[in-house]
Amino acid sequence: KKVLATKVLGTVKWFNVRNGYGFINRNDTKEDVFVHQTAIKKNNPRKYLRSVGDGETVEFDVVEGEKGAEAANVTGPDGVPVEGSR
């Protein structure tokens, strides 16, 4: 997949743990970017399912997906594990 941007910060708009996807709002362009649970690189080690929490700040790369921009290599800021869904 073509990389459109790297090390982008954003805020998780919503994430559905059961369906394994959601959207992140980019801090720079204010665009919403699709995020799938497989894109989460560093999950909260205390959680079994990969997820990001609503309102959580995350860092990610933006790649060209089949339906437009999507997140890849999702971590917390500066590469720490994500907090995950509460």
Rank of each mutant, 00 (worst) to 15 (best):
E70R: 10
K13W: 00
R26C: 03
I40Y: 05
V74G: 02
L9W: 06
V12K: 00
K1G: 08
R18S: 09
K67Y: 09
T29L: 02
N27W: 13
R50G: 09
K1R: 09
V17E: 12
V3N: 07
A5P: 03
V52R: 04
T11F: 08
K47H: 15
N44K: 11
S85T: 13
K7T: 02
L9P: 07
L9N: 08
R26V: 03
G20S: 03
N73Q: 05
G22P: 02
T38K: 12
V62R: 01
Q37C: 15
E56D: 12
F34Y: 08
T57W: 07
K7L: 03
A71F: 00
A69P: 15
D32L: 02
T38W: 03
N25C: 13
V33L: 07
N16W: 03
V80T: 13
V58E: 01
E83M: 13
I24Q: 03
H36Q: 06
A71L: 00
E59T: 13
S51K: 10
K1A: 03
L9D: 07
N27H: 14
F23N: 05
R50D: 10
K30R: 10
F60D: 05
N25L: 08
K67V: 06
T11H: 07
V62A: 01
D32Y: 00
K30L: 09
V80Q: 14
G76H: 14
V17F: 09
P77F: 14
G84N: 09
W14K: 05
S51I: 13
N25F: 06
N73C: 05
N44Q: 12
V3I: 12
F60N: 02
D54Y: 11
P81C: 12
N16V: 02
R46S: 12
N44R: 11
K41F: 08
N73A: 04
V3M: 07
A71T: 01
V82S: 12
N44G: 15
E83T: 13
W14A: 04
F60H: 04
V62C: 01
A72G: 04
G68V: 02
D61G: 04
E59H: 04
V63A: 04
R86G: 14
V63Y: 06
N25A: 07
V3P: 05
N43C: 13
G68R: 05
Y21A: 04
V35N: 03
G53D: 11
P81A: 11
F15A: 05
A5E: 10
T6A: 08
H36W: 00
F34I: 06
S85L: 12
N27G: 06
D61M: 01
T11L: 07
K41M: 12
H36Y: 05
K30G: 15
R26Q: 04
E66S: 11
R50W: 10
T75D: 06
R26A: 02
E66K: 14
T38I: 04
D61H: 00
E31S: 05
F23V: 09
H36L: 02
K42W: 15
W14V: 04
A39H: 05
A5G: 05
K42A: 14
F15N: 06
V82G: 10
N44L: 11
E31T: 08
V52F: 13
L9E: 10
K67L: 09
K1D: 07
V74A: 02
G53W: 11
D78S: 14
R50H: 10
D61L: 00
L9V: 13
W14N: 07
N19A: 15
N16S: 13
N19T: 15
T29K: 04
E31H: 03
I24K: 02
E66D: 11
F23S: 04
A69R: 11
R50L: 10
E56C: 11
V8C: 07
K67W: 07
F60E: 06
E83S: 14
V35P: 01
V52C: 07
G76M: 15
V74N: 04
K47E: 14
D61Y: 04
G22E: 01
E83D: 12
G20R: 10
A5Q: 07
I40G: 02
F34D: 05
T57P: 08
P81H: 12
K47W: 11
A69V: 14
D78W: 09
F23M: 08
V35I: 09
A72K: 10
G79F: 10
N27L: 09
A71W: 00
R46Y: 11
H36G: 05
N73T: 01
A5V: 06
Y21M: 06
D54T: 15
V3T: 08
E64C: 09
G22C: 01
R50P: 11
R18W: 08
K67M: 08
G55K: 06
K41L: 12
R26W: 00
R26M: 03
E70V: 10
